[in-house]
């Protein structure tokens, strides 16, 4: 790996984004490799956003939503889970390592868990190395 990985994280507003904010208010430290994009619900996250992040040069994509049963919109996280399996399958078929995407449930009180998750996922991505999707796409074009 010749450069630090870039992880694009999609976080739901109610649980996970609040959890990430809590990591901040609690002054927990984690890698700066992650950059968060806020959506209202993990049910809003689909293949379009994930593939776009890789297309633009992300090395990993993290998706976080409320724990099962705790979704602010009742069941958006379940829909996210189903789509996640689909995206995993899809990127594997395209020749990418499915470990480059990860889905985890982070509640509003789990700042510590969020910080640990980001650090751990960053290590995983470092092992996988930089993604070549962007370069390959540009060659194709």
């Amino acid at each position: 790996m010749n450069k630090n990985p870039t992880i694009v994280a999609f976080l739901c507003n109610w649980c996970s984004y609040t959890g990430a904010d809590l990591a901040g208010t609690s002054r927990m430290k984690y890698t700066s490799d992650v950059r968060v994009i806020r959506v209202m619900c993990s049910g809003r996250i689909g293949p379009t956003f994930v593939l776009k992040a890789f297309r633009e040069g992300a090395d990993g994509v993290l998706i976080c939503g409320c724990h099962p049963g705790d979704c602010h919109y009742h069941e958006g996280n379940y829909k996210c889970l189903r789509r996640f399996h689909l995206i995993q399958k899809y990127i594997s078929q395209m020749g990418m390592d499915k470990g480059r995407i990860r889905l985890e449930w982070i509640s509003a009180s789990e700042g510590k868990e969020f910080a640990e998750l980001v650090n751990e996922f960053s290590e995983t991505i470092k092992k996988l190395g930089n993604s070549k999707v962007k370069e390959m796409m540009e060659e194709l074009v």
Partner: peptide, 20 residues
């Protein structure tokens, strides 16, 4: 979805990664 449109979020990803 008003205020969270595909266009808005995809542009956000573009802007983010371009700067990175």
């Amino acid at each position: 979805t008003k205020h969270f449109t595909d266009e808005q979020i995809l542009s956000q990803i573009e802007g983010l990664m371009a700067k990175v």
